[in-house]
């Protein structure tokens, strides 16, 4: 019990620090890509920027609109935050020599838990937008809900391909099944679908219709300020980290070393893979403009879903024949 508590505390700290620096690096990388230096005033090379941002958010006034539903309005950021963190209860980061994973809990239905929790996450967005009692958040929330439903479907289908190849729903089992060949090769289509839907799941550009600064001010979090806004913000980045972790676990071999380069410990490879993914998301954000809403829906239902289904059927046939 105590060990689990200590593990959770350490992991929480790691995740929050990662969030803080992911945010800093995102701003840096976006800055470089746009020929700006990015934040570099607070501390050497801007490294203390996250602390300054946190201090700023804490000191901001916490506003609640008159028309808001106070209880739900206050609850929504925490739903987002809690579900974002809850996923880390089962994410394994590496394995000991005897095959036991470095994780708080090794759930054998890991992937189901993951899907369940990430679906609850959207409640934070829709409740927050709805309870704000004003137009833009409501629009953002409606968009968020519709987007989640359409993209989660394709995402789950891309998971199922991996599940069939690995023959298990335990995340550790899936990683172990990739010792010979990483699943992004046999599941190339599934991998591409996952990458696209993951961007949509985390509401990041080019699928950030939920926030859409240019049309909806801030989307579902327009009315939020201070720490409540911060909670949504943290949740977004932690979700980004989560989808990166899942991508490396399910498709990129987790902590398996590539080309038999086993002199580095598995955790290093895992971190590298997750880092590469995070970079990719930042890179996308600096490159692509936002989708139009009807195209987002068309793309989700008429393109991604059929391809994902096709991929699933093909995988099933292949597995059945072997």
């Amino acid at each position: 019990m105590l060990i689990v508590l200590v593990k959770s505390a350490v992991l929480l700290l790691v995740v929050i620090t990662t969030f803080a620096y992911a945010m800093l690096f995102e701003r840096k990388i976006m800055g470089w890509m746009q020929l700006r230096p990015g934040p570099n005033r607070v501390g050497p090379w801007g490294l203390l920027q996250p602390a300054a941002d946190a201090a700023k958010l804490i000191l901001k006034e916490d506003l609640t609109p008159k028309t808001a539903d106070p209880l739900i309005y206050r609850l929504a950021p925490f739903i987002s935050l809690l579900t974002a963190f809850a996923v880390y209860a089962i994410v394994p980061f590496g394995a000991n020599g005897d095959g036991s994973p470095w994780a708080i809990g090794d759930v054998n239905a890991g992937i189901l838990f993951l899907m369940a929790i990430s679906s609850i996450g959207v409640y934070g967005i829709s409740l927050g937008g709805w309870a704000s009692g004003s137009k833009f958040p409501l629009l953002g929330a409606v968009r968020g809900t519709a987007q989640m439903i359409s993209y989660e479907l394709s995402m789950s289908l891309s998971f199922v391909g991996v599940l069939m190849l690995a023959g298990t729903t335990s995340l550790t089992g899936i990683v172990n099944a990739q010792e010979r060949v990483w699943f992004f090769i046999p599941q190339a289509l599934g991998f591409i679908i996952y990458v696209i839907t993951a961007v949509a799941e985390t509401n990041r550009t080019p699928f950030d219709l939920v926030e859409a600064e240019t049309e909806l001010v801030g989307g579902f979090h327009t009315e939020y300020s201070g720490l409540r806004f911060g909670s949504f913000f943290i949740a977004e980045y932690v979700n980004m980290l989560t989808v990166s972790c899942i991508a490396s676990l399910l498709f990129l071999g987790g902590w398996n070393a590539p080309f038999g380069l086993t002199m580095l410990p598995g955790i290093v490879w895992f971190v590298l893979k997750v880092g590469a993914f995070m970079f990719f998301y930042m890179w996308l954000r600096a490159t692509l403009p936002r989708f139009r809403y009807d195209r987002l829906m068309t793309f989700g239902w008429k393109v991604l879903l059929p391809i994902a289904t096709l991929n699933l059927v093909a995988t099933a046939a292949w597995v059945a024949l072997h």
Partner: peptide, 9 residues
């Protein structure tokens, strides 16, 4: 587009 942004980095 991705190539351009990467180059500008």
């Amino acid at each position: 587009g991705l190539g351009i942004t990467f180059k500008y980095m």
